[in-house]
Amino acid sequence: MSERQITLEVLRYRPESESEPVFQSYSVPCQEEWVVLDALNYIKDNLDRTLSYRWSCHMAVCGSCGMVINDNPMLSCKAFLRDLPDHIRVEPLHNFPIERDLMVELDDFMDKLKSVKPYLIPDQPVAEEDGTYRQSSAQLKKYKPFAMCINCMACYSVCPQYGLNEGFVGPAALALAHRYNVDSRDQGRRAREDVVASNTGIWECTFVGACSEVCPKNVDPAAAIQQTKIASTVDYFKDLLMPGKRDKSGNAKQAAGDGA
């Protein structure tokens, strides 16, 4: 266990005493195997009890500790010092209002998450006495990667469209809508279309692709959005060419579900 002196430059914002954020430097004696979160906890416990940030699980699953570390949004509990230089700049996530220090306001995301109806909307729900749906491993595999999002907000932090266009639903929420759209148990795509396939939904995305590059869980929101665009376009032309031909739920399952 070798020790390493690291300088952590942390963006502070204390709304009761400052009108804009300022950087504050801390010199932290770190263990080589530490992550940035360990260094922040060292500061909190030993150097400065006024530093505020969110964290909980320390195992990359609760999604609390997303922050920008040397210009890259990542989970601070999985940002290993061994991969970083001796001088580390830590900032709150971009594209969100800073409430205090490294804590950003998530209200907008929480509203948008809800707006895409992220829950199963089946045509014919299985009744309680009948137990469960059947689903093959192949059907599971098609939506499972999009169900891995931990809402860490790294994708929103790096998405220029979300930063520049207030209404954009954004990568994680759209990926989650896609997750349900391609679940074999769900027929709710039409119900989600009003929000998802709108000008502030998938069509606001210009496929920058940064969201997928920074996602710590390999969710690939960019892929989810492009696939939704294709499915939605197919729907549009089907409606145009064969009005009234669509089933009640509006699902064109070949396009959305089976891909090939």
């Binding site: 909980s56 699980c57 195992m59 609760c62 609390s64 931990i150």
Partner: peptide, 10 residues
């Protein structure tokens, strides 16, 4: 915490 941060997730 926000619901999805609850420790059930671990």
């Amino acid at each position: 915490v926000y619901p999805m941060r609850s420790h059930t997730c671990a």
